[in-house]
């Protein structure tokens, strides 16, 4: 009986997952190019071979992982530092907190355009002005450091999220425990290492989990700024799939790429659960 009652939800979810998955796998096994409607039929591993031998593929995987790892590292470390900093009371703390959170409410495309034009433009961007002020040659961010630029944009967007979660859980830190540690002779670093860090282990795991889910499929920031270029320097897997499907119109190859993306996501998930999953069980 309970199973029967659960079934509408379970069945909907299954359809939701299984149908697109089955279709993706099906498309990846046939010739399906919008520009060549005459080539049809079973393709075997051809689409997969096409994807793997594409020189952009390995770049895309590496870029995806670099983007993921750097952004998670920057946001967690930066978010932790800021959260600890504004955990102390000072005048205007409420406003500072509000301002810190606000980037999270900016849409990804708007965020990317803001950085592209306002901050990183080599002629009139704010960063260029700063560089000129110090007598340096302005950096052409999106041309010379494309992946790094994208990482900066995404980190700016996700830092508030990490900060918000860590900030709230710092507030539940027991004050007497810190005082006890202080009486036990702990300095700030020892309190950080033995009190704050264990207390924050779980929220940090949550932040990493959620960020990984969203950052594996970054697209809008790349699409609006670098278009994956120059060359493949800022192409990640999501962007490569988009390229295959809607630039080269090869649905078959794009679907093969999507299957790789699923596999990559699973590998990352297994690692994650191994490393930080145990923090969540407590």
């Amino acid at each position: 009986m309970p199973r029967l009652l659960l079934s509408p939800a379970v069945i909907t979810l299954l359809i939701w997952m299984v149908v697109p998955l089955a279709l993706t796998i099906y498309f990846s096994s046939i010739f399906y190019n919008l520009m060549q409607p005459d080539s049809t039929g079973f393709a075997g591993w051809m689409n997969y071979e096409f994807m793997i031998t594409n020189p952009a593929f390995s770049d895309a995987i590496i870029n995806t992982l670099v983007l993921l790892a750097s952004t998670v590292a920057i946001t967690v470390i930066g978010g932790l530092a800021i959260a600890l900093l504004i955990n102390e009371t000072f005048p205007g703390r409420g406003i500072v907190r509000l301002l810190l959170i606000s980037p999270f409410f900016v849409m990804p495309t708007v965020n990317a355009l803001l950085w592209k034009h306002m901050m990183m433009n080599p002629i009139y961007g704010v960063l260029a002005q700063v560089w000129t002020f110090f007598g340096l040659t302005p950096i052409n961010w999106l041309q010379d450091l494309p992946l790094f630029s994208v990482i900066i944009m995404i980190s700016w967007q996700w830092l508030p999220f990490a900060c918000l979660i860590l900030m709230t859980s710092l507030q539940s830190m027991d004050r007497e425990q810190l005082e006890a540690a202080e009486m036990d002779g702990a300095n700030y670093w020892q309190k950080f290492r033995y009190m704050y860090l264990p207390h924050l282990a779980r929220p940090i795991s949550v932040v990493i989990m959620i960020e990984v889910i969203f950052l594996l499929s970054v697209f809008a920031e790349i699409f609006t700024t670098t278009n994956g270029g120059p060359g493949t320097q800022s192409t990640n897997l999501a962007y490569l799939i988009f390229n295959e499907a809607l630039q080269a119109f090869d649905i078959g190859v794009a679907s093969a790429g999507a299957v790789f993306a699923i596999i990559l996501a699973n590998i990352v998930a297994i690692f994650l659960i191994r490393i930080i999953g145990k923090n969540l069980e407590k």
Partner: peptide, 21 residues
């Protein structure tokens, strides 16, 4: 002087034990 330098020990009302140790 900072509490850590005073060489006093305190037993708190909430005990304030370190939960993860």
């Amino acid at each position: 002087q900072a509490p850590s330098k005073r060489d006093l020990a305190m037993v708190f009302q909430s005990y304030a034990l370190y939960p993860h140790m």
